[in-house]
Design a protein around this nucleic acid. Structure first.
Lengths: 215, 215, 215, 215
DNA sequence: CATGAATGAGTTTTCATTCAT
DNA sequence: CATGAATGAAAACTCATTCAT
């Protein structure tokens, strides 16, 4: 009888993955010992092996966390309710990465993200799934920009794919700098200024004028 | 007599560091075995230990490679001879990262760079030296922009620090995407388009006009 | 709640220390391989590392075995029940070193003792704890002699500290000679004769006479 | 053509052995690296291998240093010129061990001595040669005592073998205590007092009286 | 199911010894 | 002969994984 996993098992796996994400982020995948993860959960190593065949299996599960950051509700709300230049706000910048960890869908803290990207360069299957996730995120933003284009906010000749890619790359780059100690205040100001220049440049004259009037 | 290392020892260390960079980039620090590095060099494990006390020591040496990418000659030449919008070229984009490996000063391949950044989040001493390197690179670009400002190419009200930070972050972000399989052709086009929008936005009207005439 | 080690862990550590003492005595510290110790216990190397961080840590534990030989019950009993010249007996000589190994408190076999003393000359922390142990043993014997002095058995002008030191040194010296093959029968006779001369010399005339009468 | 070793070779070997003794004493046999010994001599490792097939061979050479301490000239002179109770002096105590190192015949410093004794318990060939050396030293002292007996200084019923054994054992024991930090002043006083008691006890009444008169 | 002591394969590290210069 | 860089066999040590309780 094909049986789906009982509910408690799914919840147990999720709790383990959440703990693993934290520990991997704190120590790095290879420095993180199975014992550390077990300790963080308050269970024994053996228990983890009841749910995941191996440390590698657990890593894969961590990596399969759906890439939901751009799609998550607060972010979508932000985009859909406001106007285009809201993207330049620190609120948006923060949202892009700091989707509340372990609240709804857990997400990778930046240090883990960078390790995963590095790992992806040697692991094509991981690369593929990362690629897919990014494409999804990009589509989401691109569609939003296309929408704005349809509304006459963004100029017709703008390549929305490149715009989306550029904005997210900018944010990822700045994010990385925070890892080695660049101040959030500094990266935040750079985000605000650069994204503002970019978006103003792609807006129609009409939109620019009206946005300024709104302020 | 100041006791410096004999020349051949410096060269030996350098060769080991170069091999280590390659192997670390291929396999990641923890997957890279001392044997792998020795094999790549065609020597025995023991030889490496004559030059570096431990694997960790070797990693530190790898990480202390001076951050010379922006200062290296071809890059400077590119900036100094050409006009501002040359930055938007793929040549420049390539230069930023792909300073020929093991030619003059070895540099970290991207996958190693991402691993190092991730590691920096847990290692404040590493973080400090990375920070310093980035500041140096940023200063270099900012000074260039200030120069352009003095020449009337860039508008006076532009914050050149943020401009430099934004451009490098954009490049680093795109670089990361290549690690999980995004095509260079795609990232290159995004770079060209976004950096072009940015730079045109910060240029004086006069400069924009003349640059267009040059083409 | 004061976090003490669980009982079984203390017992496990003790069993490992006992095995280590045996193997160190048989082969010497550096010739003794972790595998040898594990094999003697019938466990794997890994197990030992669960209880001791390193071979050196294990050595330290071996060395911290309390110096109980003079204080142990049979020895005290011997001293307290008998008369002073019992010290000259082979029973006492044997007791001084050969407290039954691994019976109650494990003690160092002579070959290990000599290695430890040699090591102490290069390791001041080890030297300190050895010194302390010896002082304890010496105090015990000195107090016994002081007691005998109070009872009129030993003459008042005798320096009991030097007497104790001399007797134990004599025993340690003879012990060493057994290590390179001097017969116990020979060292035993030397002990009997020399300690007898010494003790008779420090006894009061009255005590000498009565002791002779006892025989 | 059977050829004895050229003179310079013998001298070279001797210099190496002397350096080895020092380094073995400082660090212990296993902690002493061939490099250390070479450095102490100011030559390269390779040179040592020109004269000794292996580290073990070198150790054997160190251990074969003739046991000359009791026979060496100053000591013999001391014994032969003076009277019996001179043995109780600190000068004699010092002489027993501290035959000037590397002056004529090198001798083992105490820490090396203790390591060698420990090693002898596992190495019967080493044990044999140590035993032989000790017997030689004992004979020397015993003969001296027999001589004193013939001269009417020592009583006829005294077992001179045990007396010699006891005195040397006492000295060796005290020597060991200095290795873990017992003060020379303390061990010296114990030696003076205990050896004095012993020797006075074995002397004839006549000798005791006259010795006292000499003072 | 949960536990955590035991395992041992896989690495790092050491250093006596060799040998090309 | 002397040198010291290179070697590699032999240890120490790690930690994911297993399994008896």
């Amino acid at each position: 009888m094909p049986k789906v996993l009982p509910d408690y098992k799914i919840r147990a796996k999720k709790r383990i993955v959440e703990a693993a994400i934290q520990v991997f982020a704190e120590k790095g995948f290879h420095q993180a010992k199975m014992t550390d993860i077990a300790k963080k959960l308050g269970v024994s190593k053996g228990t983890i092996y009841q749910y995941f065949k191996s440390k590698d299996e657990l890593f894969k599960a961590v990596v399969q966390i759906p890439f939901s950051r751009v799609r998550d509700e607060p972010l979508s709300a932000l985009l859909e309710s406001g106007n285009l230049l809201d993207i330049t706000s620190n609120t948006f910048y923060d949202k892009l990465w700091s989707t509340p960890l372990f609240f709804s869908e857990p997400t990778w803290p930046p240090s883990l993200m960078f390790e995963i990207v590095s790992e992806a360069s040697r692991n094509s299957s991981l690369a593929n799934s990362l690629h897919e996730m990014y494409n999804e995120a990009l589509s989401f933003l691109r569609e939003y920009f296309e929408d704005q284009k349809a509304k006459g906010v963004i100029r017709r000749e703008v390549n929305t794919q490149h715009l989306a890619l550029g904005l997210i790359a900018l944010q990822d780059g700045l994010q990385g700098y925070e890892l080695f100690g660049m101040e959030r205040s500094e990266t935040g100001k750079a985000w605000a200024e650069i994204s503002n220049i970019l978006l103003q440049s792609v807006m129609t004259n009409k939109a620019v004028t009206s946005e300024y009037h709104d302020k």
